[in-house]
């Protein structure tokens, strides 16, 4: 079997990370896929901070168990998806979580051969 001498590496990718309370991830992923994202990865995590400091007794309504959602999107769509997720997850309320976006140097994954061929890659 011939060893591949070339990997298709995608650039212009952006990582959107969204941290929300446990159980909200589905809303976030739905909003993101609606806006054009292809998929998402969800972690379970535990948060500390704002809850106790800024919400007082209302802090108990915020679950310290969190879900962290990774969504990799093309740079062009990033702002749009970012905004849609922000609205869907109601991130303008204290304690609901946060979202951030970071540029990715490169990413690689399965790229269908016929698409790769269009960009001059012959595997």
């Amino acid at each position: 079997m011939k060893q591949r001498d070339e990997i298709v590496v995608l650039t212009d990718a952006v990582l959107i990370t969204c941290i929300v309370q446990r159980g909200v991830a589905d809303t976030v992923v739905d909003a993101a896929t609606d806006a054009g994202a292809q998929g998402a990865t969800i972690f379970y995590a535990r948060g500390m901070g704002v809850r106790q400091k800024h919400l007082g007794v209302l802090g108990i309504t915020v679950n310290a168990e969190k879900e962290v959602i990774y969504i990799v999107v093309p740079a062009d769509h990033a702002d749009h998806i970012f905004e849609r997720v922000y609205v869907a997850a109601k991130l303008d309320t204290p304690g609901m979580g946060m979202i951030y976006m970071s540029p990715l140097d490169k990413m690689a994954t399965y790229v269908p051969p016929e698409i790769a061929a269009r960009f001059g890659h012959h595997g």
Binding site: K53, L58, K90
Partner: peptide, 20 residues
């Protein structure tokens, strides 16, 4: 500089309390 909890909007209280 914020020392204590900020005042919450009514909709925020609703969003926090209702699901809970």
């Amino acid at each position: 500089k914020w020392s204590r909890a900020r005042s919450l909007r009514l909709v925020d209280v609703h969003r926090l309390l209702t699901p809970y």
